[in-house]
Write a protein that binds this DNA or RNA. Sequence first.
DNA 1: AACGTAAGGATCGTTGAACAATTCGACAAG
DNA 2: CTTGTCGAATTGTTCAACGATCCTTACGTT
Lengths: 233, 233
Amino acid sequence: MDDCLLTVNDAVADLAQDRGRLGRSSTAERVADILRDRISEGFFEPGQRLSEEAISEALGVSRNTLREAFRLLGHERLLDHRLNRGVFVRILSAEDVADLYRVRRVLEGAAVRRAPSQRALELIAEAVADGERAAAADDWRAVGTANIRFHQALVTANQSPRLDEAMRQLLAELRLVFHVMANPRDFHEPFVARNRLLLGLLRDGRLEEAATFLDGYLDEAEQLLIRAYEPNR
Amino acid sequence: MDDCLLTVNDAVADLAQDRGRLGRSSTAERVADILRDRISEGFFEPGQRLSEEAISEALGVSRNTLREAFRLLGHERLLDHRLNRGVFVRILSAEDVADLYRVRRVLEGAAVRRAPSQRALELIAEAVADGERAAAADDWRAVGTANIRFHQALVTANQSPRLDEAMRQLLAELRLVFHVMANPRDFHEPFVARNRLLLGLLRDGRLEEAATFLDGYLDEAEQLLIRAYEPNR
DNA sequence: AACGTAAGGATCGTTGAACAATTCGACAAG
DNA sequence: CTTGTCGAATTGTTCAACGATCCTTACGTT
């Protein structure tokens, strides 16, 4: 009887993980989810104005609800809210991109310098493998998302929910500018092998080497991005 | 005539700096400012429910506008928004506090490992001096705010607007729990001298020493806070 | 005593309409 | 070419209303 209770308790404890999904469904948040997806897939282009009337009608929600969704995305820096002028899909300046990479160096650098947990290593390894598979299949869009998962997984080594969340937001913001890459292959290909290499360094516990390697990695990614981006401002 | 035009253009260019102040005043944001202040000064206590009806009436704004303000503060993690139940002043768990200090170690640690700019050193030195003055005057509340300014200034060494903003939010969140300290002196006093010490290490360029010193510093602050906090959960 | 159900009240979620405030472009006057 | 002025379009904000959800209380069942 005792062990029976124990397993029940264990099952109940597992359930607690799903608690997050419970409350999470107001109309405004669902609208925000939709818009976030549309923005990160490039359906809405940076600089484009999002009309309250048009979108509220298209989605079948009231203007007030839509405005709540706009607020949410504004706080995620995906939308630019200009008073009395409306909301616009954010346009990142070159300075913004530089700042995003500064933050990445801090977040990912700190993660790499920590001994990553077994669980973190698994997540990282998965992302590496996915990227390699996608590259072999010439699916460079998939390589991009695998790459994002790779860096997100890196940050989980910090064991901090808040840093995970910050990284999620940061990557969403970066997606705003990924679309300027005319040829995604040129941007993603160089990093497939490096991800594998970095994973190796982490597994071997060569953390300082991993950190310097990562710095160079991020420097180059930033350069590539800025070069492709700067011209059309 | 040419140089006349030049100076006019220069003056106009300077004006562009103030552009930020223009759009920054919707009613919802001003309401959010008020509530944020009230929360961080402890007027609203953690766990307290903020009634839409009562507050919208008290502030003379509509429920819709107030809800927009609530969303803003929810995103800053100062309010807890539970669907169909209302918004509550956030209650930080001990795990939250631990996470906040994890983030601080990353943000402040990265800042310290960088050679801080002259400007950053000045800001840090000012905060140190303010803290010492306030301590001499037995004004422990002022010591607390000076201490916050000290750590905020530390992070500016990262030269990243986004990290500055993240630190601002983090400290606002931490203020939610500072109020549990019955005796602010016990909490702030030990750190006045350490701030001075850390400043010295930074000035001398002994960055690695500064980093390890800071880690110990944050460990102890976290311990003090958790010990005072854990009992009354 | 523990649990399921039901009813009522309070509060939130969302809507639709309305009006004021603001922006923006066009066009005329200097 | 610059400077007013006007009007259309859009946003900012308010208000009232109704359905949905949650909490409490009470009641009855097992």
